[in-house]
């Protein structure tokens, strides 16, 4: 019998712990498929963040290092400088990367560290139960913006891809979404390109993935995908922000 669908080798047998409808599972799978296709699992070291995916070192079959909150890009820098011939990636959420770890990601990008960052933006803190994130949209209700995010009180949501694209050390920055089959296919292409940019030694690469959090958004998984399309994609336009014409 022909196998038409199987678990990528770069994922372990450990079942995901993520909530129903959460898109982390999809994004993990995309990263693993890319690692398989590029045949780099044995040469790759991943860095886990603090957040819902703190223990994704249990899911990826490559060597993994768990980092303090927001520090993944610094840890990845240390790894890559010690292992210049290996592939190093970080997998970070929006609280981790765009709040507590802003300095680390900006400086890793501007130094042009040859690492790849998978940045999952779901506009909320998931693990600590739905607090306002730097990426929370104006008007969005969270447990720490119970009356909706108000710019005069909470400021505005951070557009990380746009910001990092201004840095010379960043070689490739793209924002994708995993709300539809079509977009998932595009997301995988972007992730693959980001790893290829690293393999080619061109500089820092990052893929921002718009994602859902049905549990903390208080919506069904299907409604969450609609909300992502109708709200997030408007504030966070999809597309390549750096390295559009990059050949890898």
């Amino acid at each position: 019998m022909a196998i038409v669908f199987k678990k990528p080798n770069a994922l372990t047998d450990k079942p995901f712990h993520y909530c129903p409808g959460c898109t982390h599972g999809i994004i993990h799978r995309l990263v693993a498929e890319v690692i398989d296709e590029l045949e780099i699992e044995g040469n790759t070291v991943g860095v886990s963040p603090v957040g819902c995916t703190y223990n994704n070192y249990e899911y990826f079959s490559c060597d993994m290092v768990q980092a303090a909150h927001g520090r993944a890009p610094a840890v990845a820098t240390g790894l890559k400088r010690a292992l210049p011939d290996k592939v190093v990636f970080t997998y970070q959420g929006d609280g981790d990367l765009a709040a507590i770890g802003t300095a680390e990601i900006v400086h890793a990008a501007t130094r042009g560290e040859k690492i790849t960052t998978i940045f999952v933006n779901n506009a909320i803190y998931g693990m600590t139960s739905g607090q306002m994130a730097p990426t929370t949209l104006v008007g969005q209700v969270t447990t720490t913006s119970p009356f909706g995010r108000k710019p005069q009180l909470h400021g505005y949501p951070v557009k990380v891809s746009e910001m990092l694209a201004t840095l010379e050390g960043a070689a490739y920055i793209e924002r994708v979404s995993v709300d539809s089959i079509k977009n998932i296919i595009k997301a995988k292409k972007a992730i693959k390109k980001a790893f290829q940019v690293q393999l080619a030694g061109l500089g820092f690469s990052m893929v921002e993935v718009l994602s859902t959090c049905p549990t903390n958004w208080g919506m069904s998984p299907v409604k969450s995908l609609d909300w992502l399309r109708e709200n997030m994609a408007e504030h966070y336009p999809l597309g390549v922000y750096k390295g559009k014409d990059l050949e890898v």
Binding site: A68, A74, V75, G78
Partner: peptide, 8 residues
């Protein structure tokens, strides 16, 4: 944290 990475 870079030291943490390199030591790893």
């Amino acid at each position: 944290n870079m030291v943490y990475g390199a030591a790893s």
